[in-house]
Design a protein around this nucleic acid. Structure first.
Length: 421
DNA sequence: TCTGGGGTCCTAGGACCC
DNA sequence: TCTGGGGTCCTAGGACCC
């Protein structure tokens, strides 16, 4: 059995933890650069405002009129509260898989028999404990496959009769819940696939579950076939222990203000190069190729400009210095005077497990793993960018817009809440 | 005044080579 | 003179997730 624990409106809920004055108000959180809405609390949702990924400027007046509290994304706060939530959840299972900042899977093993108190009570206990210890509201869904745990979690929030927990441990409940679930609410089925499935007369999760998996594979892909099998209780996701290594690693950001300066674009790319290098080493991999890109906004006048630069390393590397060295040759391709750059990024592809790659006799690696490990250790102990490459620059000229940022209550000394006696 | 998220995987199709 | 198959690598864009 698997459990999926998922925080309700994570970002909006985090904003309420240390600020009692907004607990009973509608709260909406914006994405990077205050660009779009990315989370809305229950109160805001019930008022019908805060639709996900709508550009903020388009609904600004409406939100103001409704008295909605606006917050910029405070990732430092969310990441810390997420860690606390995961620590608490982890105590309730032999194995945990943190799937995203606001959800984790708990794995109870293949032959899991119901715990003494029963699955329902276990789910309730997890939920109450996270509320008591972290003050985050979560929902818990339990089922025999990860996809069914996701279904149960969805049901715990949306199907009448469930209040925050749902367990799919028998045929009747499975059928009852799948029949009420739209096919597009199934994990892995988005808008596009949903439309195609609708055209085939498949509207509910139940109808999808009852299709022949091999037919579905022919019409769609192995991914949809696996979804059908998981809906029927056959485990296809293999996350028994650790998450599979990523095949590509990216870091991209839009700028707070448009960038037209050569040095600024270069520094931004250096920052992304450093970010992906750190992620690469965390995954214990080396990279064989790298892509860099810079674009203006497709919404700006004067046509879309997208420039990209591809580089293949003669010797696979995970040394930040080798990865940074590519930027100067890339810049001559990417930078064009007069373009108002809106976004740039760096991606690493062709990843190999460190140590498994066969090096060429004539192309020895010039990586310095001890130096990199030293930098990584200092930064993980004393905070990001305690030591960094100079190429990234020390002024945050292109830092993102965060006009409605709350304090970093748990990660910055000056921001720690004070209690007046 | 202007404003439009970020990450990963997959694949069709173009470019290039032999 | 003109034409042609098949493989690899890269790019752009689609699709999905949160």
């Amino acid at each position: 059995m698997f459990a999926l624990c998922d925080a309700n409106s994570m970002y909006a809920s985090c904003e309420k933890v240390f600020d009692p004055s907004i607990r009973n108000k509608p709260v909406v959180v914006l994405t990077n650069n205050d660009g779009c809405i990315c989370a809305a609390c229950g109160i805001a949702k019930r008022m019908g405002v805060g639709k996900k990924f709508v550009p903020y400027f388009q609904v600004k007046k409406e939100l103001e009129a409704a008295g909605v509290v606006i917050r910029s994304s405070n990732y430092e706060l969310y990441a810390d509260l997420s860690q606390r939530m995961m620590d608490t959840c982890a105590r309730f299972a032999p194995d945990i898989n943190v799937y995203s900042i606001d959800e984790c899977f708990l794995n109870y093993g293949k032959e899991a028999t119901a715990p003494q108190e029963g699955w329902d009570n276990l789910a309730s206990t997890i939920r109450k404990t996270v509320w008591r210890e972290v003050r985050l509201p979560i929902c818990v869904g339990i089922g025999p496959t990860p996809t069914l745990a996701k279904v149960a979690n969805h049901a715990s929030k949306n199907v009448s009769g469930f209040t925050g927990v749902a367990v799919l441990d028998n045929e009747n409940t499975r059928k009852h819940v799948l029949k009420q679930l739209a096919v597009t609410d199934v994990w892995g089925i988005g808008m596009r696939l949903g439309a195609k499935l609708n055209a085939l007369g498949i509207h509910t999760a139940w109808e999808l579950a009852n299709r022949d998996p091999s037919q579905i594979r022919k019409a769609f892909s192995i991914i949809v076939e696996n979804t059908v099998r998981e809906l029927n209780g056959e485990v296809r996701h293999c996350w028994e222990t650790v998450r599979v290594a990523k095949k590509e690693i990216y870091s991209t950001r839009s700028f707070g203000n448009r960038v037209t300066d050569y040095d600024e674009l270069r520094a931004a790319l250096a920052g992304h190069a450093e970010t992906v290098s750190v992620k690469l080493r965390k995954q214990k991999c080396v990279t064989g190729s790298m892509t860099l890109f810079a674009t203006n906004s497709p919404h700006d006048n004067g046509g879309y400009v997208r420039r990209s630069f591809f580089h293949r390393f003669t010797v696979p590397t995970n040394d930040t210095r080798n990865i940074l060295n590519v930027i100067d040759s890339a810049m001559s391709q990417l930078f064009q005077p007069g373009v108002y750059y809106y976004k740039c990024g760096v991606g690493l592809m062709d990843l190999h497990e460190q140590g498994l790659f066969q090096y060429d006799l004539f192309n020895a690696s010039n990586d310095n793993p001890r130096l990199m490990a030293c930098m990584d250790n200092i930064n993980s102990r004393y905070g990001r960018s305690t030591v960094q490459m100079a190429a990234k620059g020390f002024e945050q000229r292109f830092s993102m817009k965060r006009a409605f940022l709350s304090p970093q209550y748990t990660t910055q000394w000056p921001d720690i809440p004070k209690i007046k006696c």
